[in-house]
């Protein structure tokens, strides 16, 4: 079987995979990084979003072998070494931006990509950027608020408008 090597959350990772092994499977099954979730098979739900070379991608719609040599960042690498939540994670907790938690890793990784590109997004920009992330629990209200807050904006005031 082919070998694949990449850097995951700053650490070298390698493993034997089949051609058909998806990046999401490699992370979950080979590396035990089960924070990356799989919620659909048509590349729509976004529970599997990770960053590959700094870009948000759906790990269930990319083969592990395509990530050869890449820098991969997953939800497990987001908190500080001491376990402290990063700004986005903290905002999700502060604003009740998650319920069952299944879509949450993808939401956080997508939000991180958005804020890198657009540090102070509008409500509409946030909703637009979340087009590929489905949440069934929150009705998105508090997710959008959390992302507004993570970007340093007054989420409460914007949501009340």
């Amino acid at each position: 079987m082919p070998q694949v090597a990449m850097t995951v959350n700053g650490k070298p990772a390698r493993g034997e995979v089949e051609g058909r092994t998806l990046l999401s499977s490699f992370l979950r099954d080979n590396l035990g990084l089960t924070g990356t979730h799989v919620g659909c098979d048509t590349s729509q739900c976004g529970a599997c979003v990770v960053h590959v070379d700094g870009k948000d991608v759906k790990a269930c719609t990319m083969f592990a072998l395509e990530a050869e040599g890449a820098q991969v960042d997953t939800i497990e690498g987001q908190a500080g070494a001491d376990g402290s939540l990063n700004v986005i994670q903290q905002a999700f907790q502060d604003h009740h931006g998650l319920q069952c938690g299944f879509c949450t890793p993808g939401m956080v990784m997508t939000a991180a990509a958005l804020l890198k590109e657009t540090p102070k997004p509008s409500e509409a920009e946030i909703r637009d950027y979340l087009e590929g992330n489905i949440c069934r629990c929150t009705g998105y209200h508090n997710i959008v608020k959390a992302i507004l807050a993570a970007s340093g904006q007054d989420a409460g005031a914007i949501a009340a408008e």
């Binding site: 590349s43 729509q44 976004g46 979003v49 948000d56 991608v57 759906k58 997508t110 990509a113 590929g132």
Partner: peptide, 9 residues
């Protein structure tokens, strides 16, 4: 097209 993650691939 699609969504941001799809557009990156």
């Amino acid at each position: 097209i699609g969504d941001p993650a799809v557009r990156n691939r």
